[in-house]
Structures are given as C-alpha cells and as structure tokens.
Design a protein around this nucleic acid. Sequence first.
RNA 1: CGGAGCGUGGCGCAGCUUGGUAGCGCACCUGCUUUGGGAGCAGGGGGCCGAAGGUUCGAAUCCUUUCGCUCCGACCA
Length: 584
Amino acid sequence: MRFSSCYIPTLKESPADAEVISHKLLLRAGMVRRLTSGLYIYLPLGLKVMEKIAGIVREEMNAAGFQELLMPMVQPGDLWKETGRWEHYGKELLRFKDRNEREYCLGPTHEEVITDLVRGEVRSYRQLPVRLYQIQSKFRDEIRPRFGLMRGREFMMKDAYSFDADSAGAERSYKLMYDAYTRIFSRLGLRFRAVEADTGSIGGNFSHEFMVLADTGEDTIAFCHNCDYAANVERAEVTWQGEACAAACPPCEKVATPGAHSVEEVANMLHVPAASIVKTMLLTVDGKTVAVLVRGDREVNAVKLKNLLKAQDAELAGAAVVEGLTHAPVGFAGPIGLSVPVYADFELQGGTDYIVGANAADAHFRHVDLRRDATITAWADLRAITPEDVCPRCGGRIELTRGIEVGHIFMLGLKYSEAMHAAFLDETGKEKLMIMGCYGIGVSRVAAAAIEQNHDQNGIVFPPPLAPFTCILLNLDPRNAEVNARAEAIYALLREMDVDVLLDDRDERPGVKFKDADLLGVPMQLVVGGKGLARGIVECKDRRSGEKGELSVENLARDFSAWAAAVRNGWEKQQGPERSGPAL
RNA sequence: CGGAGCGUGGCGCAGCUUGGUAGCGCACCUGCUUUGGGAGCAGGGGGCCGAAGGUUCGAAUCCUUUCGCUCCGACCA
C-alpha cells in the first residue's frame, strides 16, 4: 500500500475526550473515530488490525473444529422471554418494537438464537456435538461507555457455542476452546493469564476469563506464586485458617461517635485499628435488603454474596434504604437489632470485642461479641482476597495484578437447553438435554488491550501478528529521482517477498514521516534516503526496541529476512514462555 | 441514576466575570524558500459561538429550557 493513497488521518494532538492511552493512540493513529458515545467508526487501518485479530481467531476456531456461521444482530424478544433474560438481563439489553409492535432487541450475545437454531435441527445423539461460532458486532447498552474501544456499546466479538450429548463431551468442547484461546493470545503476542471467573449474567456452572495483563485493566486478578491457581478477585476464594476466638468480651456499651461515618473516622476517634471494627454493609439482593459484615480493613465482595444467596444480582443499597433501616444517616449501620438477614465473613469469628455501628446517628457500640450480641444468619466467605491471604489450593503466596478481560469461556450446562428445551434422543431412545458451552472473545477490545500493553511515548508498538503492516518503508525524498527509484524498487522487492509493506511516498518532510511511522506502531521501519544510499545502505529500525541497523541495498532480500527474524525473536523473548494457566 | 464539568472553523483552545457584532495554535489553500525527527516567511479560505425561547437598542457573553459529550461515584456504611 502507498501512504499517499490511503486514508490515514493522523493527529498531532489527541482529542480532549480520550482518556486512556489506547483510545488516544487509536484516534491519533487514524484508526478509529467516535460517532457518538460508545460507538466507533473503524477507519481502514483500524479495520485492518481488527481483521488481523479476527483472522487468527478464525484460524484457531476452525482448527479446533468449530464452524463459522452468521446470525442476525436483531433478535426477537420472545426468545429472550423463554430464558427469562428479557427480565433479568437489565437495561444493557436494548429493546425496541417494529412497525407491528413486535418486540425485538439488539443482540448483546447469541445464546438464545443459536439454541433456537440447534433445537430445531438436532434430534439425535448422532448429530452431536455441534460446535459453531461467529464474528460479529454486538450491542450492549452499557451504564457508562468509556475508555474508547475498551468499553464501547457496539463492539466486535467472536462468540462460539457448543452442544454436547453428555458432560464428558461438554468438557472436551470446553477444553478445545480453552486451548484454542491460549493459542490465540499467544499467537497475538500478548502477555496474558487465564483465570477462574464468575459467570455473571451469562450464567452456567463455571468459567474462565482470559486477561491481558496491563496496569490500566478494569479487573483485578489474584494468582498464586507457588501453583497455577489464578482467579478474578470477584471469585478468588479466601480460606480462613484461624480458630474461633474464645476470649471473654466485656459487656456491650454505646459510645458517641459524632460525625464518624467511615471506618477510618471511627478508628481515629476511638483510637483503635480498623481491624477491630466491623463494617456493616447493606446490599440489595434481588430486591431484598441484607446486611454483610466484614472486618473494617476488608472489602465486601458482592459477587460472593450473590452466589451464596443464588441471586441474580447484588448491589449496594441506596442511602434511602440505609436510612430507613438504621434510622440514621449512612455510616452508622450495625448488626444489632437489624431487621434483615445478617451474613458475616468467616474471618470475624477469629476475634471479639468489636466496634459496630449502633443503628443510630453519631453512635457505635463497643465490646461487641457478634455471637452474643447479634443474630448472624450465616457465616461465609464474603470478602475480597488480599495479598495477605494465601492460595486456596496450596497455601502459597498470593499476588494481585490488573488485567483486561479479552476472552471468557463458560460451561453453561443445562441453563439454556432446559429453558428452551434443546433436547435429543440418546442411544436408548431416551430424551436428554444438550449440554452447552459458550465462548467469547472481544475482538475490538483485544486491539485496545494490545495497545494498552504495548506502547511508548511515541505511539503504538504493535505486536507483529496484529500490526496493520509488517513493515513501513520511508521514502525520505520522493522528489529526488534516485532516492525515489530506489524506494520504489525496494517496495517492489518487499512485495515480491510477500511482506505486507506500507510505502510512505508522501511529499512530506522527513520528520513527519518518522513521527507517523512511530505513531502507527508498524513493527519494522525501513528508511530510504540520500545519505544512506550514498553508502549503499538503507536504515532499519525495530519499533519495539528502537534498535537501528543498516541493510545493504545490494543484498536487501537476504539482509531483510535476517533482520525480520531478529525482530520476531525479540518479541518472542519479551512475551516469555507460554503460560498454561489453571488446570481444568 | 446521583454529582461535577464542557459544547466557540476539521482538531486543541481563548473570549463569557464587567453584553457592543469572534480570536489564537495546529490542520487546509496559494507562492517563495527549505528538506534525515511533526519547517520558515508572506498571502488566503473556512465558524448563523450545540439547539430553542427570553431579557436588551444590541447576546458567544445574562436568564430559562433542551440536546449532546466527558469525567467522578456504585466499597461511603
């Protein structure tokens, strides 16, 4: 491709509404433009990156024995009512009516549609397994779209679905996808981790997320230094190893704590560590309010509560609910005399003589023995894991790091086949439900994540497999006949060698070309200019390392191939050995 | 949904407090010079100041409404 005939509108400055680095650089490099909140136009270069990613995904899906199909983005509401997700999916599901007042939604995912397809076709165990996928736009009406391509409302996704006759088959399908995902993210040149995850609104029995490691990630993951345990903090189990505290506790008494709303304020006012305070959080779980107790220096994990109560969702109660229940402003809730179920974190059994909110303005209780003074509905693992905790599998050291969720695979089990009656006849002629799995990759998010992980002050540093071009050839002086002729000859040679090369033949100053080349993140830069040609060389620069070298014009094909191998090698070293992730 | 902020040429912004008929940088067009890390000089084109209504002799500026966008909050108990 010639730069002069490409639409690559690069920007010197980044638009004011871009916050994260991937968003800024995608805009500056002329890869995307925002249409409106959460909706992006993929410009030619951005689309090319997307297609590179999709290409690798497609190859690995096909290799795993999944077949591509394409389903409509618009889906009938009736199907979603069958599974109950019309009610439960919430406002993220964009609904609308057609001219005949029939209800529809824009597909945020396609379990209903594909299950409808398969239940209408498959009758016999002989037809199973069915393994299908598509690469398509999804629409989710996010609460707050942000971070550019990272959390848009419309985005490109690969979603795959498997239907098996028995759980052994379903596990084989799941494993095929787990391995395919590992291969995909390895091939893309990304540093990533597979982690155990919560199944969220998709549901199912268990799931794994694939996380690109980056400090700007929205998720936190916990992993063990000793074994291969790794999990999203939403899910990471906390094992409480202490013993129930048997120490005596003085009688409970009320103390004035004017204006002390937070644990920190109470701790300072009463001169006690945060760990001797019990934090009482009120949460609304499927419309009902419950209280959760954790130590003052801990954080409630709402996902664990939701799963404990087998609920659809759990979120912090609003101030009105808190005030109505505690007869006090937010900040003074406590378990004593509360009229809702109280769930307490295991860890609190390890101590006594706590401070709790008094359910009255500006007051707390001290010398509280939770067993003696409060009614605890149940003790459970309800807090978020911390680096002080140990691995739930082997007791090893736990570390937390940030990640960007780019893939998620789910063992759905019977959730959808039951609701939609996707059944078949087994060998004995008995009707059975299909066991399903579903597997997503956020293709557009992968592009953003790759940039979050790979960039520097000068721009994007694309891993070669998803770079829009392999090589950018800078013709520094197109008006100079000799330089121009050399550049054209090298361009032709590289194309013959099947190198995906962008020739910068624009009538621009050299500085502009250098800057744009760095910004675009093309892994290999070749510079053809009068100075080098006089010495019979062209300069080369590895975008990742910044290392410069010289290739002889005479033996360009040979030198280029050797250099290309060195560049690839550098990337592989940086990525490190493939990580296996947690055992299945 | 709650809180904050912003809408002024394609992009980034100033002007608004204290109303007087719109400006800067980048980009764009023309010419000359320049040509190895986002050139210099000179000239030029482009904006009913997000929209609607109001106050006023006069509104980008003041008031009301509305739309759009961004950020923060959903671990504060």
